[in-house]
């Protein structure tokens, strides 16, 4: 690990200013992703601003009937909150499908959103990787790429975003609140937080240097039954190959509305809007779920090792939609 200086932030504004003041400074929250990468010298901050003690650890009701989740709420506390369990069960399911009990006790809401890819070449400093070292190439394109993206990738990078939580939040239309060094705040729809790789995979989000996530707001729960399903190589403690978060609202035999997000397929939690359009007004049936799955993966491109993800994502979507409808 490269050496760095450390300070404990006094307030959100002071933390943002402290990071903005140094080009190589970073926020540290739970540290479960950042320290992992610092040990391998993939991340090399010269200064760490510890935001883990800031009073951003509350989950509050919003006037609109939703919840405002502070950036420092731990993944385990968010998953266990009775309001989340009853009103946003797929968020609890997604959180509990990720990492381990120990990691969830440390991982924060903001750190989870901003965790970096698990692409093995990103982790291997002997290999070319445009995300780690701009312009060096992408070893995954012709290499071991069974865990990589089938949607929204580019010639420069085919990595996926590894978060489960973010997939459920994308399905719930969460909004990200940030605070900047001058104290200004802004709100970013979760679908706009992460950038697709295009030619600059090292730029992963729309956040500026020193811009700090303060909270995530969940709108009131949409009508319909929520289900999160994750498919992985082991039954526990493994990242998603593919995951689907779905909310399906029925009216009689028909589907009134559906919201669907996919994980493990792209550099951001992937909202399947074409599939949602296909389902709206359709009779709830395996035929409709198949059409939705085909629509969702219509633009998918495999890279050899990950070709299996395309049929796997379709099957996972059909089964998740069926599960959401069954008990709707």
């Amino acid at each position: 690990m490269q050496s760095f200086t450390y300070e404990r932030a006094a307030s959100a504004e002071q933390a943002a200013a402290a990071v903005a003041a140094q080009p190589d400074a970073k926020f540290i929250s739970g540290g479960t992703n950042l320290l992992d990468l610092m040990k391998l010298e993939i991340e090399r901050p010269a200064h760490l601003v510890d935001i883990s003690r800031l009073p951003l650890d509350r989950i509050e009701e919003t006037a609109a009937g939703g919840l405002r989740v502070g950036a420092q709420v731990r993944n385990s506390d968010l998953a266990a909150d009775p309001r989340v369990r009853s009103r946003y069960p797929m968020l609890t399911q997604a959180l509990l499908a990720g990492a381990s009990g120990q990691i969830r006790n440390k991982a924060s809401t903001s750190g989870n959103l901003l965790q970096r890819t698990r692409c093995p070449y990103f982790y291997d400093r002997n290999m070319p990787c445009n995300k780690r070292e701009q312009g060096s190439g992408c070893a995954a394109l012709q290499g071991f790429n069974r865990t990589h993206a089938v949607l929204g990738a580019s010639e420069a990078c085919i990595a996926v975003h590894p978060s489960d939580m973010a997939v459920a939040m994308a399905g719930l239309d969460a909004r990200i609140e940030t605070i900047s060094p001058g104290g200004e705040t802004r709100t970013i729809p979760i679908g706009d937080l992460h950038r697709l790789p295009e030619a600059t995979p090292h730029v992963e989000t729309v956040l500026g240097h020193g811009e700090m996530i303060a909270a995530v707001t969940l709108p009131p729960p949409p009508p319909g039954r929520q289900v999160y399903r994750k498919v992985r190589d082991r039954a526990s403690y493994a990242f998603a190959l593919v995951s689907v978060a779905a909310i399906v609202e029925k009216s009689g035999d028909r589907i009134r509305s559906a919201r669907i997000a996919m994980g493990g397929v792209a550099a951001r939690p992937w909202r399947a809007t074409e599939a949602e359009r296909t389902l709206a007004g359709a009779v709830a049936s395996d035929g409709a779920f198949t059409d939705a799955a085909e629509a969702a993966l219509a633009g998918a491109v495999g890279h050899g090792g990950n070709d299996f993800k395309i049929p796997l994502a379709k099957r996972t979507m059909r089964h998740t939609l069926a599960a959401a409808v069954e008990s709707a």
């Binding site: 540290i28 739970g30 479960t32 320290l35 883990s52 385990s76 120990q102 990691i103 006790n105």
Partner: peptide, 12 residues
């Protein structure tokens, strides 16, 4: 609460 002590700094 249980945590992994390898993924956190003593100073924190």
């Amino acid at each position: 609460r249980r945590i992994n002590s390898c993924l956190t700094l003593a100073a924190m």
